[in-house]
Nucleic acid binder design. Structure first.
Lengths: 242, 242
DNA sequence: CGCTGAATTGATTGGCTTCAACAGACGTGG
DNA sequence: CCACGTCTGTTGAAGCCAATCAATTCAGCG
């Protein structure tokens, strides 16, 4: 069950580590942050494997993921799952220009997660009074768009080895920007099935190719631990895309 | 070569058939349309198989496709092509929040095409003075986002028959909304390779499955002509997604 | 220590690609 | 108007990559 964090225990936007990548990014407008924060409706705590919202629901809030990992996915009628995004701290989820519309994907936590939520009226108010927030929101949408087209082209046309390399290289880059030392062993709360569903292959085959990568001294990936051995080669396999 | 249409021959936004789907959509603000039109920088005429812009370029304008068909695609390093969108009249192309950024996809015409172009400064001016245009632009980005995630999930996880059905059903729906009678024979300027590159299979295999569909009395597709025989079944194959 | 779920590994199948040959449509020029 | 070349699309045969099914190993945990 999603748990609302009591108001007196909620943390401030000012101290948020995720802010660097989030809607309320740092900038010259820091003075008005406390003003903005008023419109952050509340903070939410979810356990592992809980849903923030599910595809098909009319779910009117939007969220910034503050802490934890989550997956955004769509489901086909035959039950097949395509993960469209691995959500990391700072990612903005669930925003729709029309809040009455059913949402087109589900968000499920992979770890315990903290979210900051925004109601449509709060978002409206922020947008109407802060041109920088509008621009930033557009930028976020734009980036999501670019990333989605890139994934589409990789999933549609790349070879399996390239798909895996792309997925990992992309993830590593994003973790790096969040201050994680990716030269060490990295903790990754993703199952084989999660990765497979993100790149459109089966977990069985993924397993085999990961062994290949290990033999080729590119990377190791076992027990939710990822160790990049040859980042340069991984990125080359991933393509100039990164 | 792209050809600029002389100012005195440019058509008005007011009479534009594509407007219904475009940025300057009809609405209560029709009175200010002539005001908006001032910021439409110019109109462009392209022949078949010409580029509006190419992936990797710094191309600062954005466009509404007014007439014709075009493809938006990305290219992998090995030359593989993924078509990310079939552009039809009204579609808004090439917009980026940061005009200095290189563009992430190419646009090539499939037929003679007419485009209405907007410079970044014109867009900025429009956005700063018309809250409805901001909202409309957000809505467009949002829709593109939703569509891209849907394509990703189909290309990643659906079976070939479903992919083809989805591609065609989606196209038919969009043509219908543009006033084309899709019960008749429809002219489609797409080669086998184009369709194959949109759904991530080979043209050879596509050809075979199209024969199957013909035998199953679902649709025919030959010589750039498409005839839907059993729309209901096509849509069912395509999935509840539509 | 045994239970459970995930990951690996092996054997087999099959869907799709690849390669190659052929047919059809279209445009051009004789 | 037909011959010719080109390009696109179709068809056939062969092979391979990845999926499937099943058995085994492994890690985590009570």
């Amino acid at each position: 069950m999603p748990k609302k964090i009591p108001a007196n225990l909620q943390s401030s936007c000012m101290d948020c580590e995720a802010r660097q990548f989030a809607w309320f990014e740092p900038g010259s407008a820091d003075l008005v942050l406390s003003e903005r924060q008023k419109y952050r409706s509340s903070q939410l705590l979810l356990e592992r494997n809980e849903y923030l919202f599910r595809e098909g629901e009319v779910h009117k809030a939007a969220y910034t993921l503050k802490e934890g990992w989550a997956i955004c996915y769509k489901q086909l009628q035959d039950g097949q799952r395509q993960i469209v995004h691995i959500a990391l701290p700072g990612d903005f989820l669930g925003y729709q220009t029309d809040p009455e519309q059913t949402i087109d994907y589900s968000v499920m936590t992979l770890t315990e997660c903290k979210f900051c939520s925004f109601t449509p009226s709060a978002i409206d108010h922020l947008l109407e009074n802060d041109i920088n927030l509008i621009k930033r929101l557009m930028e976020i949408q734009n980036k999501q768009n670019v990333a989605c087209k890139l994934k589409l082209s990789i999933v549609g046309r790349a070879q399996t080895r390239h798909k895996i390399a792309f997925f990992l290289a992309d993830l590593v880059r994003r973790l790096e920007r969040r201050g994680i030392n990716t030269a060490d062993i990295i903790s990754i709360p993703l199952s084989r099935e999660d990765i497979a569903d993100a790149i459109g292959i089966t977990p069985v085959h993924l397993s085999r190719v990961i062994v290949e990568f290990h033999n080729d001294k590119i990377m190791e990936c076992r027990h939710n631990k990822l160790k990049i051995i040859n980042l340069k080669e991984l990125q080359e396999l991933a393509g100039s895309a990164l």
